[in-house]
Design a protein around this nucleic acid. Sequence first.
DNA 1: CTAAGCGCCTGCATGC
DNA 2: TGCATGCAGGCGCTTA
Length: 286
Amino acid sequence: MPELPEVEVICRGLEPNLLARTILAISFGTQAMRLPLPVEESALWITGQKITGVHRRAKFILIELASSATLMIHLGMTGRLNFFPAGSALAKHDHVRWLLDNHMELRFNDTRRFGSVQVIGPGQDKAGPFAGLGPDPFWSEFSAGYLAKLADGRKTPVKSFLMDNRVVTGIGNIYASEILFSSGVNPTKPVKKLTPREWQEIVVNSRLILNAAIACGGTTIADYVNSRGEKGLFQTKLQVYGRAGEACPNCGGQINQIRLGGRASFYCPACQPAPLTPVKMSKKRD
DNA sequence: CTAAGCGCCTGCATGC
DNA sequence: TGCATGCAGGCGCTTA
């Protein structure tokens, strides 16, 4: 479900409700998640601990405890984190509940179970789980030069490249299409063919669009809600995502939809012209 | 090494 | 009404 803006909005909503609270007890559901639920680790390092910080890294939500352990939550496609009065009725797909010292419970609900809940113990390498991840789009390392260097010699379509966590974290299927539209770059363009200017556009527009989406409370297509259960508003500002057949906001032409890496991808053929394909001399032309 | 495809899950919309 | 199909904000694994 959520990309960087949605996770960031959730994080910001969680922080004032979690900071300095103590986790009194933790309950786990019975359904298996993508990764095993951290029952033992929670008992050892999370229960009875005071919360000292709430942060985001990539699409992970990191809740730091006084024990120096970190609770690491990924929302996958349909994960939610919301507060409920302790003892109130459970919902279908509630998988983990953290009881706080104010008679409230933080609950992790995830219909499709693509999300995960993990614990990094006090003695474990804090950077370990993130080894191999690229920079956040807001970090200074995320630059035109960095992207061009990584792209060298590769023919990966630029949209798939931007969605690759090892390149840059947090950009998913919606914002990749939006960033490329704003940058005037065709999503199928092989990364080795992008110009320095195009990379620069992508860097600048990534930050502009992700920041705008955060300011709008994220994008709700189907079921995303923030920690207070509220929907985002950025879906009203999407230029191309989900708008196949509609008029391009820039030129009035028709927005096109294709599949790239198995994901729906939207672009304007006029504003984001397809890369020229080299003519194969061995094949007949018409 | 890269690139592409599948599978993990549930729920919803669509078409017959 | 039922049933089959395809699709969905992610991501890791397998296959060429």
